[in-house]
Design a protein around this nucleic acid. Sequence first.
DNA 1: ACTAAGTTGCAAGT
DNA 2: ACTTGCAACTTAGT
Length: 577
Amino acid sequence: MRFSPSLSSSHYFTRFSSLSLPSYTSTSPSMASGSNSLMWFRKGLRIHDNPALEYAAKGSNYLYPVFVIDPHYMEPDPTAFSPGSAHAGLNRIRFLLESLVDLDYSLQKLGSSLLVLKGEPSEVLIRFLKEWDIRKLCFEYDTDPYYQALDIKVKNYASVAGIEIFSPVSHTLFDPADIIQKNGGRPPLSYQSFLKLAGQPSWASSPLSTMISWLPPVGNVGNCEISKVPTIKELGYEDIQLNSVRRICVQDELTLFKGGESQALKKLRESIKNKDWVANFEKPKGDPSAFVTTATTTLSPYLKFGCLSSRYFYQCIQDVQKNVKRHTLPPVSLLGQLLWRDFFYTVAFGTPNFDQMKGNRMCKQIPWNNDDELLAAWRDARTGFPWIDAIMVQLRKWGWMHHLARHCVACFLTRGDLFVHWEKGRDVFERLLIDSDWAINNGNWLWLSCSSFFYQYNRIYSPISFGKKYDPSGNYIRHFLPVLKDMPKEYIYEPWSAPLSVQTQAKCIIGKDYPKPVVSHDTASKECKRKLAEAYELNKKLNGLVSDEDLRKLRRKFEEDQSEESKSKRQKQKLID
DNA sequence: ACTAAGTTGCAAGT
DNA sequence: ACTTGCAACTTAGT
């Protein structure tokens, strides 16, 4: 990789926000040059455009590059519904390990290496800050609540111990705290207002970061349990789990998401090679059913872990746009996608309880149902709607699917058909997506469930016709649901409507080889619209202050309505009989 | 009270 | 490929 060396990166040192914690800034007393530094990697698993690493290296005799294996994130959980830990599916854990191996390799080329530690990160960090007599602690600033809580502990210790802290904002294009401050202390709630506030990034036309050519050596680690990057097996995941994932994945499909900065940069270069494609990118026009070559860059997992700098990506796109006559604009353009990411980061950072319905001031209070069977059918790709199930299989196998495909299944689970709580779907995505990102994932579930941002609950993605528009012959379904591979295209989106002779011919009997639909889309979607109308009305009446009791009451009413309806249906049926 | 705008719905018409 | 009717939401701004 080649990056233009920057003469000064002083802007990193001044981009502190008054809204952030006091310890966000340096707390160092006078300190001698030539001391020990610790670079704590969490996200930002890269060498390029990594201001924390750059600063850690500067003027240090010894540099300890550390990654902490956090049991909260990495410990195997055999009770989870898919292989992996309590919070992460195996696909993402593997991606992370691959990224760490790549990072270690890059560090080694620079005369350093990655030290992998294990345990509760703040405890481990504090222990080694003492043990190695660290005078300078550097890590990328993180807005996720989990890291906010963790960082407070570490920062508190460090400031008491007189250790200098450098924690720059480099995961996003903008500092979410800056944007919130500009907006008078509240995050902007629409993309357009976000764009206006954000404007051009300060670094948009200046060289980003040094091409690091050398790092200080790793100091004496003493007799601490330092390990190399563990393998999946060493983390305690069984071969069977590994194999079961490998077996259902064609090799090419897996390597689509091999972790690491090297992969990220390689992919980035491939993506921007086609200048017309970059310039004319329109997200909603992409084909969600494309799986041989995907409709998007598929760089999201690399952005999630910071294997790719969003700012470097931004500059690369900008370069392409400068050299073409016309190009698309946000929200649909490729740059627009990066800005969406920042938008959600900003709203999430400025909204307490962003990841839940209760206590979330921007979330409509809706009496979603608690139907675990419907949830499981959706999660396990047996809703009986091939378009929905195929997407869920792609999620399980690849850990990635097209944005519009995500829309379809999220809408289906919540406001479209099943009326299951968006938090349940969020959890499934959070676990299975390689690119699952706390702010973006929650933001999109709020969006798709019409709980926030977007409120036109009449616009429901059809589980039958939406996919058909892109893929009339159902190749995507045939690929991910091989049981339907011989179903004629007339019936592939609604196999329950195929005559039994056709089902027999296709070797797929509905109700036996592939499930019957869990709901009728027509009735279910109408019911969902009605329920949302009532829930909206309640939110309006109570000015958003809907209590648990209010929700219980409305939920009971929905249940009564439903049993009332089925009763009258039965009576009508009797009359006909 | 009213208007305008809001990332990407569907079905039917041209 | 583009328009339209559908039934109609919210928030922000005047």
